[in-house]
Design a protein around this nucleic acid. Structure first.
Lengths: 179, 179
DNA sequence: CGATAACATGCCACAGTGGACTGTCAAGAG
DNA sequence: CTCTTGACAGTCCACTGTGGCATGTTATCG
């Protein structure tokens, strides 16, 4: 059983949901460190239905097809969750581009870095708004994963700020310029 | 053209190489932020040969089949490199497990965190050894990507150290205990 | 009433992963 | 000097993951 399928099972513990609902929930709850696509969600749902881990209900309006966990599904989820989680995977195209920087025209890297910087500034702001809004209002688990996000974004921004000129750093930026 | 194929093209600029060589090079140079597998390397090489971006030489001992870039390949690489790199992707199973922490038995999270901590400590040590060993000895581009690695590992370790007890933090750890 | 946007699923080609399998050569143990 | 072992080199396959296209449905608003 793969992690994506297991996550869907996990979300279904909170009650029946359709593929569409699950995509939305996953996007919201684990989307910042686990990606999934509509295609795969429907594929996994169908597979898990065959395996007896979930059961499809009757189709509602707009072809809504609700799924609910079975007892076997709960068991499978618990077994999956209890396993040691594997190592993280990072794929950062910007670092690829940078690694081949010697083949790149002047100024290109700076432009790329600047564009990425904007993205990360926005993400950090979103995370911090979330944290402020929620306060102590949500569980420690969600708080911990959010904290990871905040630290990650700050780290990336910090890295940008300390980049040498030749590799796309913005010359002459002193300290404390975080937007 | 996908990033993995483009990277192979990039490495081939330094001279002909076999699929095996390319895997080793990639592992070394971009392996810390871009993953690839033998299977895919051979697949891309074959595809690029059909597209005329690389040319296969005669097979040597042990079926070694060297490839070299063509003019079209250099052009394609330059065009790829000049494009804006996409956003990074992070998939961190430990965060998934943590997000579902409420369904997990007591102590499990701490064990998982401890195991991951060891991995990151080791990686940080490796990076810093690399940096010390190389000194100013390698180009700014490799230095910048390595710096990203160092900052990332430090960030993760820091996050571990500030984790609350309920989410797998080690109780009573004060400040500055980094191995 | 009609346009538009959000809802909901299915399908497909391609990209990426990991393990199993086959065979080749070099080097050291016995 | 042979024989075992391990590094080298490539192939194949099933599964996982991505992104776009296609198709149809319902709500909303001017």
């Amino acid at each position: 059983m793969n992690a994506t399928a297991a996550s869907l099972l996990g979300f279904l513990h909170a009650g029946p949901a359709t593929g569409w609902d699950l995509v939305a929930t996953a996007e919201l709850v684990i989307g910042d460190f686990w990606s999934l696509t509509r295609s795969q969600v429907y594929r996994e749902l169908a597979a898990m239905a065959e395996w007896g881990l979930v059961e499809a209900g009757d189709v509602g309006p707009r072809d809504r097809r609700p799924y609910r966990v079975t007892a076997a599904g709960r068991e499978a989820f618990a077994a999956w969750l209890d396993q040691e989680p594997g190592p993280e995977q990072i794929r950062y195209p910007l670092l690829l581009t940078m690694a081949f920087g010697q083949h790149l025209g002047p100024g290109r890297l700076s432009a790329f870095v600047a564009a990425h910087r904007e993205v990360h500034v926005a993400r950090l702001a979103r995370y911090e708004a979330l944290r402020a809004e929620a306060g102590e209002g949500f569980d420690a688990y969600a708080g911990a994963t959010l904290d990871f996000g905040v630290r990650y974004e700050r780290m990336v921004l910090d890295w940008f700020d300390h980049l040498a000129d030749e590799v796309g750093g913005v010359a002459g930026e002193p300290e404390g310029r975080r937007v």
